[in-house]
């Protein structure tokens, strides 16, 4: 029952043969070997699989692969440049101690990116709301929130 879909992945036009019952997460991890997005629960309850589809943060574990057709998908792998320059949010996570075990980190950063793309100057509450669906067991969120705040300040002209 294989089907072919085409979409934009991290800025590139791609095509993939998929099984209709797959999730976007499965496609990313298994077909494209982009393993930055993680499966933490598979039920949309932890946010470790967060990627951006058409500008919106979504749980890729619940996103039917067939709905990806024609979409623009950005994953954590699409943020840093190939020569290793990090995105300002990534840099801020590194500099502010927002990473411990790191399993939630890619999803967390994608939620933060979707927020900052939409809202250049988020309040602490906006940040908390944006990452409320990204569970983290290590950090208690404090340094993550600080990192996102600082990244937003840096991006201000």
């Amino acid at each position: 029952m294989k089907k072919v879909i085409s979409f934009k992945l991290n800025g590139e036009d791609v095509e993939a043969e998929v099984e209709p019952h797959w999730s976007l997460l499965h496609l990313l991890r298994e077909t494209f070997e982009l393993t930055g997005a993680k499966e933490g629960c598979g039920k949309g309850e932890c946010g470790a699989c967060t990627v951006i589809v058409d500008g919106k943060a979504i749980n890729s574990c619940l996103f039917p692969v067939m709905e990806v057709e024609g979409c623009e998908v950005t994953t954590i792998e699409g943020l840093a440049t190939l020569n290793g320059n990090l995105h300002p949010i990534q840099e801020s996570f590194v500099a502010n101690g927002a990473v411990q075990c790191g399993f939630c980190t890619p999803g967390m950063i994608m939620s933060a990116k979707a927020l900052l793309d939409e809202n250049k100057n988020p309040s602490e509450d906006d940040i908390r709301t944006a990452i409320a669906g990204n569970l983290c067991r290590c950090t208690g969120y404090v340094q993550i929130i600080e990192a996102i705040k600082k990244a937003s300040e840096r991006r201000e002209p």
Binding site: L34, T35, G36, K38, Q90, A95, V99, G102, I109
Partner: peptide
């Protein structure tokens, strides 16, 4: 000093290899 974690860059880029990967 507030030295960043040495493995942070691998982790923020999604490059770190967990057992899942």
């Amino acid at each position: 000093k507030r030295v960043p974690k040495v493995d942070a860059r691998e982790k923020v880029t999604g490059r770190a290899i967990y057992i899942h990967d």
